[in-house]
Design a protein around this nucleic acid. Structure first.
Lengths: 188, 188
DNA sequence: AAGTTATATATGATGCGTGACATATGACAG
DNA sequence: CTGTCATATGTCACGCATCATATATAACTT
């Protein structure tokens, strides 16, 4: 997965592993976060498979920059990937929901407090996606020629993040409400 | 993660790896799917760490059943885990959204078709969660004493799945609409 | 009669990720 | 003057998952 994301970014213009980490942080981070260590590893594999090549740019004072660019084979691999029709939903893994599933034995108040903490974090995410990132994308879009798909797509990814965060906020609110209405436990 | 889920299920009553797979399929599958192979592996680790013990029940015609139960240490580990306050959001990974992020260069009609396929799959999920699973949980709840938290919690997990599926359907519809309104590409 | 599903356990290879560590320096804040 | 942030690359140990494979039989479907 990361493999293709890296090819996608490098096709826009060649850059280093470090640059790729920033590019990811500013775009797909909330649908696919990536650690530097994993990026370097994956670049290594890509180079071994001749999908990218690297050139070293010497620098003084800092480590040399290793700039990667995509080969013809890399471009083909990327285009094949984007061209595939996806017919199955991605498996979802939400560690917190597993935990929550086993909260039946715990005091409701504890669960409510827990949900409030996460509710606020999701709300913060939602706000950031709805304002800051939105403006960033709008600003970047201003340079575009207008009939380009890219800004729409990029903004739709942002929008997905916004909607998902909002849904989590809604779910947490709803669930807190349901927990508040639980009759106190009869110890008889 | 799976480790704790298995402890949680085994605390309700002892069972085999195969049984655990069914239990997961009928409950937390959409927040944490698990393959049999991984379940057996994880049970092996749990036993090595003395968090569970197993007894073999001979059977004729089929492989013997290896029934696992939780030790005191296992119960403690589980209770520690459920008692922890979670203060960070889980990282999210949605392979399809990474792909979609790079759809800018592809013909809009292709993207629309792709989104329709997934839209329908999400709608199917939503319907199943809103009806079948809902009824199953309601039926199981009937046996409960009434002031038990468990059914509420279990149903809230279901509800999260329902809301998330619905949000994906909404996002796909919205995005298809946005793509339909893209002006045809001027080749000048 | 042949094929699939359910029952039941388990291993090996592989993929893909994280977190900690190692190294090095310029710039900026307190 | 000290700390930490940004720049920049990389390795190692480990966790946790998948997929393929092996084995064995009863029951149900086509």
């Amino acid at each position: 997965m990361l493999k293709f994301a890296l090819l996608g970014f490098l096709l826009r213009h060649p850059m280093t592993g470090y640059d790729l980490a920033s590019a990811i942080r500013n775009s797909i981070n909330f649908v696919w976060p990536a650690q530097l260590s994993q990026i370097y590893r994956t670049l290594g594999q890509l180079e071994k498979d001749d999908l990218v090549v690297s050139e070293v740019e010497p620098q003084q004072g800092r480590p040399d920059r290793r700039v990667y660019s995509v080969t013809d084979a890399g471009r083909t691999a990327f285009e094949t990937w984007t061209g595939e029709l996806v017919t199955d939903l991605d498996p979802v893994r939400v560690p917190f929901m597993v935990r929550f599933f086993f909260y039946g034995a715990r005091p409701p108040q504890e669960t409510i407090t827990q949900l409030q903490v996460l509710r606020d974090l999701h709300a913060k995410d939602r706000d950031r996606l709805a304002t800051e990132l939105r403006d960033q994308i709008a600003a970047a879009t201003a340079h575009h020629t207008g009939d380009d798909l890219d800004p729409l797509i990029v903004d739709s990814v942002r929008r997905a993040g916004e909607m998902m965060s909002q849904t989590w906020v809604d779910w947490m609110d709803e669930t807190i409400e349901r927990l508040r209405n639980v009759p106190p436990r009869s110890t008889t």
